[in-house]
Write a protein that binds this DNA or RNA. Sequence first.
DNA 1: GATGAATGAGTGTTCATTCAT
DNA 2: CATGAATGAACACTCATTCAT
Lengths: 197, 197, 197, 197
Amino acid sequence: MIVYLYTMRTRDEEKKEALFKATIKLVNEIGFVSSSVSKIAKEAGVSPATLYVYYENKEDLLVSTYKEIKMMMSRAILDDFDDNLPIRDILRNVWFSMFDWISNNLEYYQFMEQFANSPYSTLVDHQALEQYFVKVINVLERGKREKIIKDVDWHLLGAFMYHPISGLANPNHRKGFELKEDDIETAFTMAWDAIKL
Amino acid sequence: MIVYLYTMRTRDEEKKEALFKATIKLVNEIGFVSSSVSKIAKEAGVSPATLYVYYENKEDLLVSTYKEIKMMMSRAILDDFDDNLPIRDILRNVWFSMFDWISNNLEYYQFMEQFANSPYSTLVDHQALEQYFVKVINVLERGKREKIIKDVDWHLLGAFMYHPISGLANPNHRKGFELKEDDIETAFTMAWDAIKL
Amino acid sequence: MIVYLYTMRTRDEEKKEALFKATIKLVNEIGFVSSSVSKIAKEAGVSPATLYVYYENKEDLLVSTYKEIKMMMSRAILDDFDDNLPIRDILRNVWFSMFDWISNNLEYYQFMEQFANSPYSTLVDHQALEQYFVKVINVLERGKREKIIKDVDWHLLGAFMYHPISGLANPNHRKGFELKEDDIETAFTMAWDAIKL
Amino acid sequence: MIVYLYTMRTRDEEKKEALFKATIKLVNEIGFVSSSVSKIAKEAGVSPATLYVYYENKEDLLVSTYKEIKMMMSRAILDDFDDNLPIRDILRNVWFSMFDWISNNLEYYQFMEQFANSPYSTLVDHQALEQYFVKVINVLERGKREKIIKDVDWHLLGAFMYHPISGLANPNHRKGFELKEDDIETAFTMAWDAIKL
DNA sequence: GATGAATGAGTGTTCATTCAT
DNA sequence: CATGAATGAACACTCATTCAT
């Protein structure tokens, strides 16, 4: 009896990476609507058929790309997270981590924003992805109990802690205004003024 | 063969109105990517060819629709604008006008958000559309001179006056949280805390 | 008020006919498996997109073509159907009508056979199409009551009245054998011998 | 890298058998058109590439499968063939052997029918395969000489000896009618009535 | 012999737009 | 002005087959 154990051609991590980057690049350049499978494949330097070796279909490609980016950002923020600091410092750290990550990964961030506003976004369980999100909510709740933070629903608190960021960090939204380190500090002070008691 | 039977002055406007509404409805229901010209025409009850009587092409249809909505919201806000009030009251009026208009025109608002995050948005000269925007900036500048408002770039002030709204007003973004009149008041207080000196 | 009654470009019966014939020709020449929409459209001299003006999709094209042919054959047979003749004469008329129609419409007949043996055939309600079929069954039942025809299930009778035809009429099935008028008469005698008491 | 661990003599035949059965199963379930090489390989539990070790290409796979089945049926019929019996008994034996084999190998039979009506069938030299066929023709010729069977071309005789079978044996063609042992006997009597002098 | 990766060529279908009436 | 017909170009995706290991 013979049993053959062969090595066969294996999945090429470089190709998957190329597809990941091509997807982000194209969506940023020509938008979600025009980013077709064949254009993405061409940009990545592979055949459209090859794309289907790595992803189930177009939806899978886009959703997986989004999730991957979201994870990257989440990890970056959680790295700096220290529960033992005073509440203001924790939130300040998150604030700066986000600005930091966004300015260093602008392409990724812009893809995320486009994705979040496309109908594809309904296919993703957002909460599940955003572990750091839960941690921040917990901190806010603690702040409320300690009479440091306004006693209002966390949706309100979040609206002032997160939404201004997208307006400020994305260069598309603030044409003609260069955001400097000082401005980020100032912005955080404003956010803190909004939510603190 | 053409047969003229009656004169009906408003016929054109009726069709254009139907196309306007069909565009918004479809984009909200099936998203930008899937909203094709023929589907929109069908929804409006006209032939695809007729659409090209009223709009140059698909781009024109979408951009015009967006501009029209933007104008409507701008007009609604300007109606309540009274330069003679104290600064806080002016901004509070704007704040409530926006929430008011959005909750009464949710479909239009959601279309706007989708549009603003699509590549089509680059085709629109935003500033030109938003007259009320300039008026608010002027008020903010006045507030800075009168030492009522923090002396920071208006981009920062705007980020806290406008961006939280989109997070709060759009039901898609705040699942499981019902926004009441009181919350809007609270939210404005928070925005004011953020920007006031 | 004006109401416009326009004449617009109308559906072109010639194009539908061309698609009908192209479908049959291609399926006969290269088979069901290889007959793609674009090949059929090319054969008919229209754009693949035009095909979708006349048919909902490929399935509709094939099924409609099959039904149309079936109807044609059914009409041809019913034209000669005379309930007042002796049973043997009625069946003989049907027998000859079928051979007649098949030899004059070989292409159509071969398409039907291919279709009937493809999985598409499950999509058609056969009985509904074949009015002449019911009429023949009724005649057979009468023959049984009148002790002219063997008292067996009509499936058995039908198997000897219909199935030999497909073997004899289709030149593909009888290579090297030319079927003459006399042979058809002989064949009917054999069929009659099979079913008569 | 290749590692030889055991010797297993039947390995090849196992895979070929799996492909043979997978082909038949899939073609019966989803039809000729949709049965792709990779689906068949998956069903057989091997890689698409492996299929090409055993068969030259898809055509070879299908044609070989058909020939194999045809041989099986032919062998089954020839097993019962006894030239020394009276003509009617010989033909009756063939008739029952066929019904027997078909009802015990319905899957195989249905594949055969689909294949015979596909354009692939032109690639097979039918006569060569059907040794039993020649034997039956010889018997028929003897019957003609002995004035037991009608003196007509064997194509006609065959049409009544074989074609009714496909209509009766295939459950797809006789919905709502259950074929019993008695019916097969009756059917043979009818066939015999058709061809006997 | 055996494999999953890889692909050019194709699939059925829809697109935005123009044509003919 | 208004229309359904018409279409080249594109769409997402699958095909039979070969490649590299």
